[in-house]
Computed example of a mutant assay.
Amino acid sequence: MDALHWWRQGDAVTQSAALVLLAMSVASWVVIVWKLRLMRRASADVARCTAAFWQAPSLLLAQQRLQSFDRDALVLPLVDAANLIANHDGVTPPTLATAGSLSQRLTRVLRDALHDVLGRLQFGQVLLATVGSTAPFVGLLGTVWGIYHALTAVAGAGQITIDRVSGPVGEALVMTAAGLAVAIPAVLAYNVFGRLLGRIEADLEGFARDLRELVIDTAPVQSLTGTTAGLSNAIRPAAGPPQGGSAPLGGSEPRAAGSVGA
């Protein structure tokens, strides 16, 4: 039984299931190859970047060093966010984004940068999980549909023998094998990449926590209290004239226009 003969014997449902399995297989293998390269680079880059960062004499020099080590921008966004807060503390105009203490603002920007990095690392995991969980059922659908049509054709022939049944049923079982062949690599890759992602995520979270403590310890004391006073002054309305229409102290009613010098 060759593939061309099997394709010609199948109907629209069987052929559609086969095309879906083919698309799932191609997509999952593309993601597997891409993520395998990304995970290998990420594991090496995170270790080298953290070591280079702590060997730098200052935060600015560490930021410059990481540009040559961090090929996939995994550690550098965290350092950029912390450096932005440290260098512009008390300089930016008072807004809700700059309100609060330095610790609160650092936590916010580092959390956002970390979520962005982890989102890029986790890309493709949903596809692998979807392929691994649905491909066997797509293959089973093709098998059940093929067996149904095979038994219908045998029953219509009027004479049921083993030779007439075994051939079409065996061809229908190919879909189940194809579904398993598509699902098994996707499930294995999902588990392996999930374990690697857990290690990288733990390293990045630990680095972000240490970076936050470093910036807070080296910041001026007045930066730790926040800028909420400046924010309240910026949004406070200007004082109006006293109620009741009384004139200001030490003055009289304002003169009408054109009466100056009269």
Score class of each variant (00 low, 15 high):
186 A>K: 14
80 D>P: 07
170 G>W: 05
9 Q>I: 05
203 D>E: 08
57 P>C: 10
113 A>I: 02
98 T>L: 00
48 R>N: 08
83 N>Q: 11
54 W>M: 07
8 R>V: 06
95 T>S: 00
195 R>C: 14
7 W>G: 02
261 G>I: 09
92 T>C: 01
175 M>P: 10
208 A>N: 08
58 S>R: 02
23 A>P: 07
181 A>S: 05
77 P>M: 02
172 A>W: 09
213 E>R: 04
138 V>D: 04
124 G>D: 15
232 S>A: 14
14 T>Y: 01
65 R>H: 14
44 A>F: 03
255 R>M: 15
130 T>W: 01
180 L>T: 11
171 E>D: 07
106 L>V: 06
97 A>P: 00
249 L>Y: 03
201 E>R: 13
34 W>A: 04
255 R>F: 15
142 G>K: 02
150 A>K: 09
65 R>G: 13
28 S>R: 14
122 Q>P: 01
25 S>Y: 08
139 G>E: 06
192 V>E: 14
122 Q>T: 01
252 S>W: 07
219 A>H: 04
85 I>W: 04
68 S>Q: 04
202 A>L: 12
240 G>R: 09
9 Q>S: 04
259 S>Q: 06
41 R>S: 10
216 I>D: 09
121 L>K: 09
127 L>R: 05
98 T>A: 00
18 A>E: 02
182 V>P: 00
112 D>S: 11
202 A>M: 15
75 V>P: 03
180 L>I: 11
39 M>G: 05
241 P>I: 10
85 I>N: 03
6 W>K: 02
204 L>Y: 03
261 G>S: 13
224 L>N: 02
135 A>L: 06
215 V>F: 13
254 P>D: 07
50 T>G: 10
126 V>H: 03
179 G>E: 09
122 Q>S: 00
242 P>A: 09
96 L>C: 01
38 L>E: 13
198 G>K: 12
233 N>T: 15
233 N>S: 15
81 A>E: 08
101 S>R: 00
28 S>M: 12
128 L>Y: 15
35 K>I: 12
45 D>V: 03
142 G>L: 01
14 T>P: 00
10 G>W: 03
88 H>T: 00
64 Q>G: 12
192 V>Q: 15
179 G>M: 03
171 E>Q: 06
30 V>L: 14
55 Q>I: 15
59 L>D: 00
166 S>D: 05
34 W>K: 07
65 R>D: 14
100 G>C: 00
5 H>R: 08
57 P>G: 09
233 N>I: 14
223 S>A: 04
81 A>L: 06
111 R>W: 12
19 L>M: 04
242 P>C: 03
215 V>Y: 10
135 A>T: 09
144 V>L: 12
161 T>A: 06
21 L>N: 01
101 S>N: 00
172 A>G: 10
65 R>W: 09
228 T>K: 04
232 S>Y: 15
105 R>I: 06
68 S>D: 03
238 A>Y: 11
140 L>N: 10
182 V>A: 02
139 G>I: 12
63 Q>L: 09
177 A>Q: 12
251 G>H: 13
54 W>H: 05
164 R>C: 06
50 T>R: 12
176 T>S: 13
15 Q>C: 12
16 S>W: 00
234 A>D: 14
